[in-house]
Amino acid sequence: MKKITSTRKYLIEAIVLSLLLISTMALAETQAGTYYKQGESDAAKIPGYNVNDRGVISRNTTGLCWRTRDWTEENADCSCDPQAPKCQKPVEKVAAPTTPPAPITEPEKITFSADALFDFDKAVLKPQGKESLDDFANKLKNIKYDLIIAVGYADRIGSDDYNKQLSMRRAEAVKNYLVTANGISPDRIFTDGKGEANPVTGDSCVGTKKTKALIDCLAPDRRVEIEVAGTQEGNY
């Protein structure tokens, strides 16, 4: 009887010691902040999550990952918590398209031969002169311009006063045609007559009498220059 009692006593002491050991281990794990679910592998721990024996994060029946108390946004797993700040992709700002400014063109000077626009010693536009001005006006449709300057010139045959008036009449004839035939506002066209000034031929033509040879030689001096400044929008 005593032998049975002693055996029971030893069994009870062994059970108590086992329970104390288990409690001590559980307390130590709790103080260390480590929590595991059944079947968890110590060799495959993932910070902030419970893992199974295969090292895969454990999930509940709805597919959500099991977190531990040490879970933070910094150690979040993006497959479990894609909404975590570290898992968000920065939104790229798309710059609004900008329209490049139209190129500013320098003042452009176009020279028409007076003989192509008028007969010699005349200020009435010839048919081919009108065609040349029509072509010029069509090119203006691609330009935002502020002012057109038409300046007439004459050769040195004749008096200074006469040539001054002739060059002015030719410039006015060009303006009137651009206004009446091409619809350009007269306020945008400035005219001037320079007479014999700024000869192109210089001293290359000899003589003073109105001969055919001298008239032909001085042809480059008889001209109308048109200057336009503006913003080009198309091919000029």
Rank of each mutant, 00 (worst) to 15 (best):
S185C: 01
D119I: 00
S204W: 00
T5A: 13
R222K: 08
G202V: 02
M25C: 08
V224R: 01
E106C: 06
D70K: 12
K3P: 00
D77M: 04
T180I: 07
G63K: 08
D161Q: 10
E40I: 07
P107E: 15
N138V: 12
N182W: 05
V206N: 11
E227V: 15
G158T: 11
P107I: 13
T105L: 09
D216K: 14
V51P: 00
V179Q: 03
F112R: 01
S167V: 06
V206R: 15
Q83C: 00
F118A: 05
N52F: 04
K2Y: 07
S18V: 14
I189C: 07
G230Q: 09
G234K: 13
V16A: 15
G55Q: 04
A197M: 09
Y162Q: 15
A28L: 07
V124I: 11
V56H: 09
D53V: 07
K164G: 12
L140H: 08
A137G: 08
D146M: 03
I46W: 03
K9G: 12
G202K: 03
I226Q: 02
V206E: 12
L125R: 02
V200E: 10
S79K: 06
N142A: 14
F190I: 09
P90H: 07
K122L: 07
I104R: 15
E108R: 14
S185P: 02
G55L: 02
N163W: 04
S159Y: 09
N142I: 08
D155A: 11
I22P: 00
D134T: 10
K164M: 06
A229V: 10
C217D: 05
G230K: 10
P103E: 11
L133T: 01
K9Y: 12
G129A: 03
E92P: 02
I184N: 10
L21R: 00
V179K: 02
Y10P: 00
V228C: 08
T180W: 02
L11K: 14
E131P: 00
P90C: 00
V91Y: 04
P101R: 08
K45A: 09
Q165G: 14
T180L: 09
L140D: 06
N75A: 07
K89H: 05
G195Q: 01
V224I: 15
D146W: 02
C78K: 05
A44M: 07
K126G: 05
G195A: 08
I157V: 15
K194V: 04
L218D: 01
R223H: 07
M1T: 11
A173S: 15
L218R: 01
R223P: 03
